[in-house]
Amino acid sequence: MNSKKNLLTLLRKKALPGGITFLAAGLLICFIGFAMAHFELSNLKFPGTPKWYLTVHIDEGQFELGIRVGEDAAAIQRKR
């Protein structure tokens, strides 16, 4: 019981620096990915039919983040 409480306290203490680290690392990796595409949105298009696990969507020069399922995904596929 006590060790569980200690673990929770430790997690709470580490949450803030951990979250910030993840945030910074994520931003850095995103920047690297964008640099790999030569900072051009057109170079980030997914070849072929978009999959459900694709979360970065670039449609007509617009950038969108999220999971597209059901009607949304079908509509985009028709558009393409």
Binding site: G26, G33, N43, F46, P47, K51, V56, L65
Partner: peptide, 30 residues
């Protein structure tokens, strides 16, 4: 997880998506 199959199609997009995943994990924790 979805970033790995995307690497083969477009490496830059895969890296960007992986970065987005890590960024989202950070936001989730905070």
């Amino acid at each position: 997880i979805g970033a790995f199959p995307i690497f083969s199609g477009n490496a830059a997009l895969g890296v960007l998506q992986f970065g987005t995943g890590i960024l989202s994990a950070g936001i989730f924790i905070l």
